[in-house]
Computed example of a mutant assay.
Amino acid sequence: MLRDTMAAVFHADGQRGPAAATLGIHRNTLRDRLTRIERLTERSLADADDRAELWFALRLEEIAGDS
């Protein structure tokens, strides 16, 4: 669930409204999930380096899954 949330946010270029709509959840639910992701990963989505690291981790997982 959290992986899908991050992917939706990245695919929506960080726009939370469209990401929430894609996931079929309320914006507040999305906000809560993103807060949980930040807490679990000890990364901040407000920090560009942290966002890049999370995006790269998702891409590596996608690439590894394609093999």
Rank of each mutant, 00 (worst) to 15 (best):
D49H: 10
L2G: 12
D47C: 07
A19Q: 03
L2Y: 09
I25H: 04
T35C: 09
W55V: 14
R59H: 13
A19V: 05
E53M: 08
L2C: 08
T35Y: 09
A7R: 15
M1V: 14
R51N: 03
A48W: 07
S44A: 07
L34F: 02
L30G: 01
R59C: 14
T29V: 10
L23Q: 04
A12P: 01
N28G: 10
D50Q: 06
H26N: 14
A7I: 14
I37V: 15
A20R: 01
A57Q: 04
R51P: 02
R43N: 03
R39D: 09
A48D: 05
F56P: 05
A48H: 08
A7C: 10
A64G: 05
T22Q: 10
R43C: 13
E38T: 12
D66R: 15
D47P: 10
R51K: 07
R16Q: 15
L54S: 04
T29Y: 00
T41V: 02
E61I: 12
E53Q: 13
N28T: 14
T41L: 06
D47H: 06
G14R: 02
G17Q: 09
A8S: 08
M6V: 08
H26M: 11
T5R: 06
D32K: 14
R36D: 14
A21F: 06
A7E: 10
P18V: 02
T41H: 00
E53H: 11
R3I: 15
R36W: 05
L60F: 10
R16F: 10
L34H: 01
I37G: 02
T35K: 12
E62K: 07
D66P: 07
P18M: 03
R31M: 07
R3P: 09
R27C: 08
I25V: 09
M6A: 14
D49I: 11
T41F: 00
H26A: 15
D32W: 13
R16C: 13
A46P: 04
R51L: 07
A19S: 04
L60K: 15
H26G: 13
S44R: 08
N28R: 14
M1K: 11
S44P: 02
R3N: 09
R27D: 09
A8P: 01
A64D: 12
A46Y: 07
L45C: 00
R31E: 08
V9H: 00
E53K: 09
D66C: 12
L60E: 07
R59V: 15
A57L: 12
D13P: 01
A64H: 09
E61V: 10
I37C: 05
R39Y: 12
P18I: 01
A12Y: 01
L45D: 04
V9D: 00
R51A: 06
R39F: 11
D66N: 12
G65A: 15
A57P: 01
W55S: 12
F56E: 03
T41Y: 02
G24C: 03
L2W: 06
